[in-house]
Write a protein that binds this DNA or RNA. Structure first.
Length: 226
DNA sequence: ACCCAGGGTCATA
DNA sequence: TATGACCATGGG
């Protein structure tokens, strides 16, 4: 980036205004770190409301636990996660990942003790776990300082004129990680606030943006899509 | 009857 | 490096 000082100041101003407007977000919406991992995989290109149904199915079946899923018949697992879409893929990816996790670390608690850099490389090496899913798990399930870039983040960045939004994943991740204080709490809140903004105010459907708390920045409705 | 949602993988040019 | 097909459900 050309002007790191300006970028840093702007990112912090945006955060301050979002936090003031929306308040604390307490993300990720899950009861346990393990549930975060499950949700992170199931929510790939899928509305969260559908993921909730799938997680409810797992819970009702007493299957919201590592060993239960690791040992489950693939057909049955696919049937349980069906509402989240791509259920054949996701059942396999989910079970493979959990089997690997148990084999490599034995438990979520043990996994949390491993260094972040190694964990990220290991997660990205799993089939079905790309950068966003990996960073979501790192930040919200494993407590590691890793910024999550998703579709909402890209939209918000474009809207703010901070980026085109179509940049490669790692480039946008670097933008935040280089210009923000190194705090996992800040990373989590910032990402959650960008999602809320994307969900409730800055939809393509609602380009007026009158009540958008970011109008004072450079909230340009015409740059929503790229 | 569309359109899309908190991606990832693989094949192709 | 960049685009396209594919995976599939449920809500607007």
């Amino acid at each position: 980036m050309k002007k790191p000082r300006r970028m840093r100041a702007k990112l912090m101003r945006v955060y301050r205004d979002l936090a003031r407007h929306f308040g604390p977000q307490h993300w990720w919406p899950a009861r346990t770190p393990f549930e975060v991992m499950v949700g992170a995989i199931l929510t790939q290109n899928t509305a969260w409301s559908n993921v909730e149904k799938a997680i409810a199915n797992l819970r009702a079946a007493r299957a919201l636990a590592p060993r239960a899923i690791a040992e489950m018949d693939l057909r049955r697992l696919a049937r349980l996660v069906r509402p989240s879409g791509y259920y054949n893929q996701k059942a396999k990816r989910l079970r493979d990942f959990i089997r690997w996790m148990l084999d490599r670390y034995g438990s979520v608690a043990a996994m949390r003790r491993a260094p972040a850099a190694r964990l990220r490389a290991e997660l990205l090496a799993r089939n079905g776990i790309g950068p966003e899913t990996a960073d979501s798990i790192l930040l919200y399930a494993l407590g590691k300082r890793s910024f999550v870039i998703d579709a909402y983040t890209r939209r918000a960045l474009a809207r703010l004129g901070l980026a085109r939004g179509s940049e490669p994943y790692e480039e946008l991740r670097d933008l935040f990680e280089r210009n923000l204080p190194r705090s996992k709490e800040l990373y989590g809140e910032y990402h959650a606030l960008l999602v809320v903004l994307g969900k409730d105010l800055c939809r393509k459907k609602n380009p007026s943006c009158e009540t958008c708390p970011l109008v004072r920045h450079k909230c340009n409705p015409l740059r929503t899509q790229a």
